[in-house]
């Protein structure tokens, strides 16, 4: 069971039956506080299998980087965890703080503390960022049985968070992401994350399309939210982002599986040598089987 934890343990062909799934919540709390436990996760879109058995365990406070060549399934993993409905989960399980995540709708996952920072944040004309966030905050509070925040407290909190990610107040009153530059959109993602204070943040290629200054600001925002009880999955193609958000673990995703895991030094190795050696290793292993 403890081998679920990512490091040094990956399965090219996991036998689903060897994993106990749907353990009661209390069992997990007693076992070393695993926050997220992905077991043999398989997912398809339009009949094409993209995730072919993902195993990953994340403890509170940990930052895990998911790297890999284009088309390896990185964004699919992020999407499936956040509850995107186009993907069909065909096998395996995902447990988040003892709850069967796959049973929850996207908004319920958000209310449980999962946040996806989008690779391509959506423009929503006619809905201001501030109004959008107020609705989100209060919907999540309602889900958790809390009273809605009053306008004054909400505004105060939002202003503090905006400062944290150097977000201009004027953007808050504008329609959500409409006409925002690429950098502003990504910053808005991190700002929303700061407001919603998720337990698990999933950053899907947050570095794509950012110049180095924007990247630094976004990373600072993420780092300022790091705490012993919050975790993050950082999906990225390049090592660059990991200079700023230093991960505890790095996993390489290839052909829908995690084929290699290591510490932050694995990212440097990938930056230096590219992905070809990993592809070669996987192909060799497939031939040998």
């Amino acid at each position: 069971m403890f081998a679920l934890h990512g490091v040094g343990n990956f399965h090219i062909r996991p036998k689903l039956t060897t994993f106990a799934v749907n353990l009661p919540r209390t069992t997990y709390t007693s076992i070393n506080l695993v926050m997220l436990s992905i077991n043999g996760l398989r997912a398809s879109i339009e009949g094409k299998e993209i995730l072919k058995g993902i195993n990953l365990g994340i403890k509170p406070g940990e930052v895990h980087a998911i790297m890999g060549p284009n088309g390896s399934g990185k964004s699919t993993l992020a999407s499936v965890l956040a509850g995107r409905e186009e993907y069909e989960v065909t096998g395996g399980s995902v447990t988040f703080n003892g709850i069967d995540l796959l049973e929850l709708a996207a908004e319920e996952r958000a209310a449980e503390g999962i946040f996806l920072a989008f690779q391509y944040p959506v423009e929503i004309p006619g809905v201001t960022t501030i109004n959008f966030l107020k609705t989100a905050v209060n919907e999540i509070r309602k889900y958790n049985g809390e009273e809605p925040l009053d306008a004054a407290r909400f505004l105060k909190m939002v202003r503090e968070k905006a400062k944290l990610v150097s977000m201009n107040d004027s953007l808050l009153k504008r329609a959500l992401n409409e006409g925002f530059s690429g950098g502003e959109k990504k910053r808005n993602e991190i700002f929303q994350m700061a407001v919603l204070e998720p337990k698990l943040a999933i950053l899907d290629e947050t570095d794509s399309g950012l110049d180095i200054d924007a990247l630094r600001i976004v990373a600072e925002g993420v780092n300022s939210l790091r705490s012993p009880d919050r975790s993050a999955i950082v999906v990225t193609h390049y090592q660059r982002l990991l200079d700023y958000i230093v991960p505890d673990f790095v996993h390489v995703l290839y052909k829908g599986r995690i084929v290699k895991s290591g510490g932050k030094e694995l990212a440097f190795e990938l930056e230096e040598k590219g992905y070809d050696w990993i592809k070669a290793e996987v192909e060799a292993a497939e031939v040998n089987q």
Binding site: I124, V127, A136
Partner: peptide, 23 residues
Amino acid sequence: EALFYMRSRGISKPEAMSLLMFA
């Protein structure tokens, strides 16, 4: 896509629909 974006922030589907239509 807009609907999923809003739901991923904790806004329920009917509330998200209503916000989008109001906009």
